[in-house]
């Protein structure tokens, strides 16, 4: 694991380490099984084509989990992911890079917790944002 990040290290306006995910079709089936979302649009290409899509698409909640992975990796063992939200703005397809990103928008202390707010999003290979959202995490303080 990477070194622990501290509240004092964070600057408003800075980006956190991005995470590139490239979901395979196998992974969509694995996610369907693990999460319980067995909607065919995510693994049955015939079904996806009949639904007017060009291919199967990633589960929105899998993409939300990728953002969760980015956030929990960044905050480390001593951080807590308290809250996050997403809006699905575009579809994503397997075997393409999906880049998860985050940017610090605010930091403050509340009830003795050192909190950081971020904008979070995913980008497709064309650079379009397919998810936008925000997150609140707590981080340890050095003091």
């Amino acid at each position: 694991m990477a070194e622990q990040v501290f509240y004092e290290d964070i600057e408003v306006g800075s980006e956190i380490p991005s995470l590139v995910k490239r979901a395979t079709r196998r992974q969509l089936v694995q996610w369907a099984g693990a999460s319980g979302d067995t909607y065919e649009i995510h693994y049955d290409k015939d079904f996806a084509l009949a639904s007017g899509l060009s291919d199967v698409i990633l589960h929105g909640r899998l993409k939300a989990s990728f953002l969760g992975q980015m956030l929990t990796t960044w905050i480390g063992l001593e951080g807590n992911l308290k809250k996050y939200n997403v809006r699905y703005r575009g579809m994503d397809f397997p075997d393409q890079d999906l880049t998860c990103k985050g940017k610090v928008t605010k930091k403050y202390v509340e009830n003795n917790e050192h909190l950081v707010e971020l904008d979070i999003w995913t980008e497709n290979p064309q650079g379009e944002k397919t998810i936008t959202g925000s997150a609140v995490v707590s981080l340890p303080a050095k003091g």
């Binding site: 693990a34 999460s35 319980g36 979302d37 067995t38 909640r61 939300a64 989990s65 953002l67 969760g68 992975q69 956030l71 929990t72 807590n80 992911l81």
Partner: peptide, 16 residues
């Protein structure tokens, strides 16, 4: 469990 496990559909609907 990772906190984002809460995203899983199993908490929203019973198994299909």
């Amino acid at each position: 469990a990772p906190p984002y496990l809460i995203c899983a559909a199993m908490f929203l609907t019973p198994p299909t």
